[in-house]
């Protein structure tokens, strides 16, 4: 019975169950004997918890010291992943991720960074959406539910980062993994389809090892820049959290207190 408990996912409910079972053990032998049935049931319910939970909070760390001026590997990676094709008008095209080149007004130093949905914890787009189509998944990913989006574009008005795109024209030849269509708003999904694809992995394993990276991070890596780190912000041992602490990474418009899921070093 003990071994069953230690095999179970090391999350809060499992811990509670373990305590509960230990408590049971102290009550008496008769109850312990009876509880031989319990762990099997309890085990089943723990395993039944499906779908994303608040256990993880996915985020990105952008190392602006590694991000190369003029390089748009991340943008191309994102576009290829989601079947985003340019029509030649950057003002009406979808841009889930864009490159910005900056110059410091004092030092004149140039820097370069990608800007995309910052996956805020208190996201203005989620607050303003009249139908609740703009929502934050339990694991912190801010998404548009395009099935209930009515295309009012209030979220775009509210987004401080201009990270959302409205689809102005009919789209054809979508990819199966990225349904997109005229009249709705969309933005970076942190490649949820990739996150979820690895979601059925056993929870004990370290998150980063098993979860697929978003397309932008993969492309950046493939271009040997390694400027984008993806990981679990809730896991103090994760590479991303360590790196954020080491580099004192910042949020864009930290003054708004949105607790963004995307952080930047040397902003």
């Amino acid at each position: 019975m003990k071994s069953t408990a230690s095999n179970s996912p090391s999350n809060a409910s499992a811990a509670a169950r373990r305590r509960f079972l230990q408590g049971l053990g102290t009550i008496g032998a008769a109850l312990v004997a009876g509880s031989a049935v319990l762990p099997a049931n309890a085990q089943a319910t723990v395993k039944e918890i499906k779908g994303v939970t608040g256990k993880h909070r996915w985020g990105l760390l952008i190392d602006t010291t590694k991000c190369a001026t003029g390089c748009d590997a991340c943008v191309r990676g994102c576009n290829a992943e989601h079947g985003i094709n340019s029509t030649g008008n950057p003002d009406t095209d979808a841009q889930w991720i864009r490159k910005i080149e900056l110059k410091d007004n004092l030092t004149g130093q140039l820097s370069s960074l990608p800007m995309m949905c910052q996956h805020c914890e208190s996201a203005p787009c989620v607050d303003v959406c009249p139908t609740g189509a703009s929502f934050k998944r339990a694991d912190g990913v801010v998404l548009v539910n395009k099935h209930t989006c009515i295309g009012c574009r209030y979220c775009m008005m509210a987004c401080p980062y201009k990270a959302r795109s409205f689809i102005h024209e009919p789209i054809t030849d979508q990819l199966t993994r990225a349904p997109r269509g005229k009249g709705t708003v969309e933005s970076c999904t942190l490649c949820v389809h990739r996150i979820d694809a690895s979601g059925s992995q056993p929870a004990e394993k370290s998150a980063e090892k098993t979860v697929q990276q978003p397309a932008c991070a993969v492309s950046c890596k493939e271009d040997a820049h390694n400027a984008i780190t993806f990981g679990d912000l809730n896991d103090p041992d994760s590479e991303i959290v360590q790196a954020i602490e080491r580099s004192q990474a910042q949020q864009v418009r930290a003054d708004l207190n949105l607790n963004t899921g995307v952080r930047y070093t040397r902003l």
Binding site: G51, R137, A138, D139, N145, H147, R177, H193, D196, G199
Partner: peptide
């Protein structure tokens, strides 16, 4: 299925539209 997938990230259920296609 679509709400399960979009909101809860559950993708291994059988009634996926992609599968129908």
């Amino acid at each position: 299925q679509r709400d399960e997938t979009v909101i809860r990230g559950i993708r291994d259920e059988p009634f996926s539209l992609a599968e129908c296609v």
